[in-house]
Design a binder for these strands. Sequence first.
DNA 1: GCTTGCTTTCAAGCGCGCTCGAAGCTCTAG
DNA 2: CTAGAGCTTCGAGCGCGCTTGAAAGCAAGC
Lengths: 157, 157
Amino acid sequence: MATEALIERILAASDGPSSSTIDALHELLDDAPIEASTVPRSVAEAARLVGLSTHTLRYYEQEGLVRPARNASGYREYSAADLRRLVFLTRMRLSGMTMTDLKRYISLVEQGPSTVTERRRIMRDQHDRITRQIRELRLALETTEYKIRVYDGHPEG
Amino acid sequence: MATEALIERILAASDGPSSSTIDALHELLDDAPIEASTVPRSVAEAARLVGLSTHTLRYYEQEGLVRPARNASGYREYSAADLRRLVFLTRMRLSGMTMTDLKRYISLVEQGPSTVTERRRIMRDQHDRITRQIRELRLALETTEYKIRVYDGHPEG
DNA sequence: GCTTGCTTTCAAGCGCGCTCGAAGCTCTAG
DNA sequence: CTAGAGCTTCGAGCGCGCTTGAAAGCAAGC
């Protein structure tokens, strides 16, 4: 998946003390006033920034997940808000949310505040799925660690 | 994925104190002397026990991941060792190991002790991938928690 | 012996999420 | 004016991991 680049970058950025870094990320990525470089980005720039391909960005737009403005020539212009949404989309995709669910969720977002209840439900479901997934991964992690111990000739192999 | 049933069961079984439970699981699932019910299982029983479909079990065999014995009529008979392997396979699949890598690994296992070095390398790679994945999931988890807080009308939404 | 439900093999199909390629338009540098 | 890079839309293709279906054999109860 091309989206791994994004994660690498985000993870690299979040080395520091966890809680404050996360707050900073939220501020940066979700609702903060638009920062310095508020210049709209071309599809290639946006793709590079979020770690997706330009093809994927166009595909997401086609699916209604993001709606960048167009300039006079019909070129896409991704605003800071568009980029924040792309980061959100990428995180949700990486955590296993399906395109169908994501499309549903974004459609609710675009319908305005009356849909908050259902949006919260979707986020709660996703939260639970992620929690479960992390537990699964921890089991798998233990299994690899066990195998590695055995292959390292650990006494209780 | 049909494999979720397995995870549910394993997770249900591993409620207790983490470390000792994990040891018990390893003992049970990896190298312990075969336990009480050493009766071979039909493909349907095996499927039920590991939470996969019978189709998937046959597919895994076709791919060389497991080699259950056959009875006089050509029916598959899954031994305890076969079941342990299936559990291992399921965990690795759920943690995102590809069929290709898993086939390579199992082929090394079947080639005997001389392949331990490469097997260890594969398990270490997989360990690293899982670790990375868990970090990604934690970011996504934070994102859902943030959204839920906002939708719950939390002051610092 | 018949029925019911399991088993077998084999090959084809599918759903998801991209991914690619073609054909053509626009911008910039030289 | 031209070359080359990057943009547009559109539709088709693909890779992975199953999943399904067809056709036929086997087992157990009535």
